[in-house]
Design a protein around this nucleic acid. Structure first.
Lengths: 191, 191, 191, 191
DNA sequence: CGATAAACGAGACGGTACGTCTGGTCTTGTG
DNA sequence: CACAAGACCAGACGTACCGTCTCGTTTATCG
């Protein structure tokens, strides 16, 4: 008996979002977000957070990711290639704003904790990877994409440059950029 | 007068490397490396470190990056495409070991400090990007690569998937993988 | 309307005694005894303890004191002075063991809660003080003790040094010591 | 090098005194005094306190005891017995106020830490015990006190009742009371 | 050759946050 | 409806580092 308090859970998730969104001056910073701060802002005991989440990053994932994934859906209408283009463009749009910095920092946090990386991939990546694979297979069926390349490699070719730019900030992230990437990937760089 | 002590500088860099390499049990962790720890291990005052480096990450970059870049050189013999393949393969080899984890964590650290990211890009990325651009231009001249695609986009297509796998750990990083990526990029995924 | 559970009450008292007696290595420690621990060991809810006892110390008093008082009875046979000597010696014997440390810590706990001190005095001190007063009055009647001193002062002169040594650990607590104290008190220190 | 900051030391000691004296509503409470609280009130880092004092009690002893000992000096003029009476009366006076409660709680704290008890005895007890012994020996020489009783036992007879009343609160602590104790001790209770 | 000024080791300092713990209250469901 | 179970808020614990700041003490030019 004695059961998890839904009120506390929500207070924590909401406080986390608020701290991430409202607090600047500087841009969002996952690093200066502290469990102590979340607890205080949420009016919740630290113990309650430690009891239910293994790490600060886990709290952020819970607070943020589902919401984020919903913001960049993969639609299924029209030619598969167009759906892919649209999805990549929506990713680029979101990633070029403050949410992009947050995602980047989330990926950063995962680099020193394999368990968190795993959860991140499950929550953030898996659903989209599956959808993308279906889309790619449909693109193959539609005759837009070659059938002699591993769909995972195809997905990587399309998505990797976006995360590359997100993390290294080596170029703009907008629809123009993603379209150029898709064009190049489609026709190939070889002669 | 009084001039920077070379002995201290070396002691710091070496202590950093030792702490990064020797201390596990667990894998390398940039996160639990502390300036306090480096100072103690190097027999150096904290002030000395703060005087000469702006951040822990800067110390690590100094300790490690040149050495690393030297380990994955870009050679210039033979067909440009083969040189690129070789370089990508050598990157993959190094990144699949503990040094890869360290690079990943270095990239992670850069996500909450633009200045450090800039330095990282200068020291880590720039030389190679320039070399890669030359190589790509040579590949174009050799007729192996199309001339109607921005060489920077070409570079991104070739390199991004490697960092993607390094950071997300979604697949092996070996010569087989990089070759498959290059093949796909060359011939394109479109039909 | 539902009545206090005798089973719970006993379980609490017994668990308390067991924790106080069994748990060392170190000597008995009232301080590391916690209500949480008692509840767990007794298979009882914390609430049940809080409902029926005002403090940890109260539980200990209930668990322990009657038992202890019974261990150091005041007998009434023979000359009153001899009965007093015997009682003081029995106190010294008990107080030089682990039970003595526990009593000392109980006295300590009482120093930040007047209500508990009051209860402690009622349960621990009152009966004995009354008996001692009777004995002293008998000793006066027997001609062994002067009749021009307040019996409470006499009692204090005899008992205080024992508690002094118990708390300050400034000397042995044995029959020899108590006898010397009684001798000195009887004949006086003045010339 | 790097030397202890006298300012911090004083800030800690003074903050401790202030918290002990000023803050109630309730009476002084050593128990709810926390190192965290002292640090905050003193504008000092917790580490600074942990660096220089082994425990909360040690801070209190440092803050308070010397001052207290100075308040209840043993003077050396006139007949030794009168000096003893005066000292006991001054103890009684101080102990019947809030400082008495604090001393009582300090004694209480010592009951679960032998090392602290030892320090307490050194700082609080030793000087006075030595002085009292000299006084008693002078009283013997002056012919006021018998020479066939161990001076330590004499000291105990005189001091123990005061601490007894301090801790058990079984009677007033004033000059009248201490005089009565001394009278009784001098002439003895035996007939 | 000193003088002198910077760089140095040592480490104390005010802070922030960590992750753990306990105390006392509140909540939920069972017997 | 008293109880067990245990979640909850509160906040202290002791630790680890942070980045800043003296301290004396080298050291290496330069007057």
């Amino acid at each position: 008996m004695a059961v998890r308090s839904e009120a506390s859970r929500k207070a924590v998730l909401q406080a986390t979002m608020e701290l991430l969104n409202d607090t600047p001056p500087g841009p969002v910073s996952l690093q200066k977000l502290s469990i102590e701060g979340i607890a205080k802002h949420a009016g919740v005991s630290k113990m309650t957070i430690y009891r239910w989440w293994p790490s600060k990053t886990a709290v952020v994932i819970d607070s943020f990711l589902d919401n984020h994934v919903a913001q960049t859906p993969i639609h299924d209408e029209g030619p598969a290639i167009d759906a892919l283009r649209a999805h990549l463009a929506s990713l680029a749009r979101v990633y070029s704003g403050p949410e992009g910095r947050l995602i980047a920092q989330l990926i950063a946090e995962c680099q020193h904790d394999p368990a968190t990386l795993e959860e991140f991939k499950q929550r953030f990546w898996k659903g989209r990877a599956d959808a993308a694979r279906l889309l790619i297979e449909r693109a193959v069926a539609e005759g837009a994409v070659r059938d002699d390349i591993d769909p995972d490699v195809v997905a990587e070719m399309l998505y990797a440059p976006i995360y590359f730019r997100l993390l290294f900030q080596t170029g703009d992230l907008d629809e123009e950029a993603t379209d150029a990437m898709v064009d190049a990937a489609l026709k190939g760089i070889g002669r």
